Amino acid sequence: MAVAAAKTRLFLEVRRRLQSALLILSEPDEGGMHLDVSITPTSLLMRTPDGCTETQLPAEVRLAPSSCGGLKYITGDGLHLRLQAHTDSSPQLISVFNQSLQAQECCTFYCQSCGEVTIKDRKLLRVLPLPSENWSALVGEWCCHPDPFANKPLHPRENDCFIGDSFFLVNLRSDLEQEPKANTKVICKRCKVMLGETISSETTKFYMTEIIIQPSERSFPNIPRSQFVQSVIAQCLVELSSARSTFRFTIQGQDGKVYILLWILNSDSLVIEPLRSSGCVKKFPLLEDTSEADSGSAWNAIKVLYQPCIKSRNEELASTWESDISVHPLTLPSATCLELLLILSRSNASLPLSLRQMNSFQVAFLKM
């Protein structure tokens, strides 16, 4: 096979539920050089006269080389083939929020962007999930007598933390020197990032994409911003789609403006995209800039379709989605909506050409 060694890229997506894998060897930009590809149950090996690149699969994944089929060449994209992949069952999704928020523990709230302490040594006696956003309307439908919860919003007490779709509600009355006004932004003192907003004189909403909550005896975990945002939003989407049987979402800012239309295709993907290197080097950069990608592992990811709605794009479709009760809104700070759009765009640009579009939507992966 005549391809350019230095420019050859390999893309592998394993679907856990389907027990299948898609392998793509991308087409070089120019020139040509002999390339041999070897597939074993546990690895992929690409050899050229200049060296080789070996990709070791995760321990829970085994390929079936004899099942290779569907071989085809797509101009401008590369060589495609499909094969069976034996994997363990999909890993159980355990929310990082529930893991971090254990009742009876003293917790510290940090700004995820810079590590500034927002709340220090708060003992949480109750960590409870909030009902769906339309819970009050549903109670009105179910009750044959006046709604006992009318005009009684759920507000946390001093040692409570209520968990919503994409936010935490906490009581900050004892932490503030003066009584805050409702509907005002909460800004990090150090880096000036918007962390949340006040709901009332006692209740503050912190967005999950902006805050890390750790037991006080642990230190602040320095997680790259892009990785953190992807993980939090991916988990929110998977949990919501499972709980509410919905797969379409509008990603909107705290001002109510829609930034992204997002549609979950699947949540069982394992994606590996190693770069070509001289010598038998094992690397697993995944949907990131090459300067950042040296993680040495594959990633579980959700596959999504998306449409940007900035600069008046897709206004008609966004309006249709907003009026559809099967579409769930997910609210984030406006700056984070733009961050997410950039993450999706980078992911899309890193995919083989044939995988970047589906109908009128763009395709991307979000790391779990």
Rank of each mutant, 00 (worst) to 15 (best):
R218S: 15
E210C: 10
L79A: 12
D36G: 05
C52I: 01
Y73T: 07
V96N: 11
I39C: 06
S354Y: 05
S269H: 09
R244M: 07
R190E: 13
I74V: 03
D175N: 15
C52L: 03
P41D: 07
L10G: 04
F162W: 03
F149V: 01
T246E: 09
I272T: 01
R346T: 10
T336C: 04
D36Q: 03
S354W: 08
R248I: 10
K189S: 14
A137W: 12
R225T: 03
R17E: 13
I94D: 14
T204Q: 00
K283I: 14
D88M: 12
G279S: 08
I212W: 09
L342A: 15
D88R: 12
I211L: 10
E273P: 13
V238P: 04
A298N: 08
S113M: 11
G70R: 01
V232Y: 03
Q214N: 15
L172G: 05
C280A: 15
I233H: 08
K367C: 05
I211W: 00
S245A: 06
R225D: 08
C106E: 13
L138H: 04
E288Y: 03
F109S: 09
L25R: 06
D289F: 11
E158S: 04
Q99C: 14
L35R: 12
I233W: 05
N222L: 14
E105Q: 10
L83S: 04
P215W: 05
A150Q: 14
L330T: 01
K311T: 01
P153H: 05
R16P: 03
A301Y: 01
L338V: 06
G31Y: 13
K367G: 06
A150S: 13
I211H: 01
S136D: 05
G196K: 05
G70A: 00
R16I: 04
H80T: 02
E239M: 05
I325H: 10
E273T: 15
A182R: 04
P352L: 09
K181H: 08
L305G: 00
D29I: 10
Q56T: 14
P91M: 08
M33T: 13
S319G: 14
L341R: 07
P148F: 07
N159E: 01
